[in-house]
Design a protein around this nucleic acid. Structure first.
Lengths: 163, 163
DNA sequence: TTCCGTGCAAAGAGTTTGCATCTGT
DNA sequence: ACAGATGCAAACTCTTTGCACGGAA
């Protein structure tokens, strides 16, 4: 599904659920869908500020909350590191998170649902969602300086959340 | 490994790393190891209060931080729901979390390490840890009232974190 | 016109930190 | 004795909430 279709789908969903399509809301949803990656609330806020300079973080949070209610956005909370959102693929799936540059890659694991179902069956739990994250260094950061002390040579590629 | 051995092992580790074995610290580590489940900081704090009434939450956090540095405790952060700690099995492993009563069950998944290694190899990430959690209803909560409105009959078994 | 949404600021929760006072080693 | 630990309170971050004004339907 292309981003245009997905965007229309989300807006329609909001409208059908009795929510108003304010310009800010549309902009937030658009930013969420068009952002290639797993944006933070802060990043979404920043992307719409040029068009809507008075938009508050609270509004972004509220809009995302609406989408979460409908299961149209996947929230990846990382404790103190804040949360990332995926409005393109809201179904749970594995992620690879770079602990150095913050990049997050999606992974499609065949048979994961069956695996989860098997564990559920064995334990007697009625599982309805899951979370599978792996932490380490992304390909780019593996090649970069091991643990940059204070040098400014390694072209520290700026992916998301550089910390 | 029984809890007694594990406790001695952790205390030794702390001592070897140049940390002092204060009574509070020993009590916190003991509480962590002896707690059958995945205690919260609050729970650890409560368990040692009878013996050390002046102990502060900060001290509990600091002690856990030491163990985390040594990789001797597994931290399960749940965003707004706070964190749970596992001092018995610090190696990453799957968990089944009951969203109703808060119970957390461990699961030993054969071949998980190989699976993670395969995903790492395919994506080029250098994975050094992971997190695999499943959310749903535990066996006890499945049988209980679907979504207790206001009745007081269902013997709502008190596991951890009743929410 | 009527609610719902916005945006500001204040509140909240969990965790961390600063600092003076103790204490293990 | 001295470096390190404790414990209190303040600080911090991310997120939620209260409320008056503004705007979608």
């Amino acid at each position: 599904m292309d981003t245009r279709t997905r965007l229309a789908s989300l807006l329609e969903r909001l409208r059908d659920n009795g929510h108003r399509l304010t310009p800010q809301r549309v902009a937030i949803v658009r930013a969420l869908i068009e952002h290639d990656g797993h944006p933070t609330v802060e990043q979404l806020h920043q992307s719409i500020l040029p068009d809507f300079p008075t938009t508050s973080l609270a509004t972004v949070y509220k809009t995302i909350a609406l989408l979460k209610e409908d299961g149209e956005v996947l929230e990846l909370g990382f404790g103190e590191l804040g949360s990332r959102y995926d409005g393109r693929h809201p179904k749970p799936h594995p992620h690879l998170i770079c602990t150095r540059c913050g990049a997050i890659a999606d992974y499609t694991l065949q048979g994961l649902d069956e695996l989860v179902a098997r564990m559920a069956a064995e334990t007697g739990f009625a599982v309805d969602s899951h979370r599978f994250d792996m932490f380490g260094l992304c390909p780019a950061c593996r090649g970069a300086a091991p643990t940059p002390p204070t040098d400014g040579q390694a072209a520290r590629h700026t992916e998301h959340r550089p910390d």
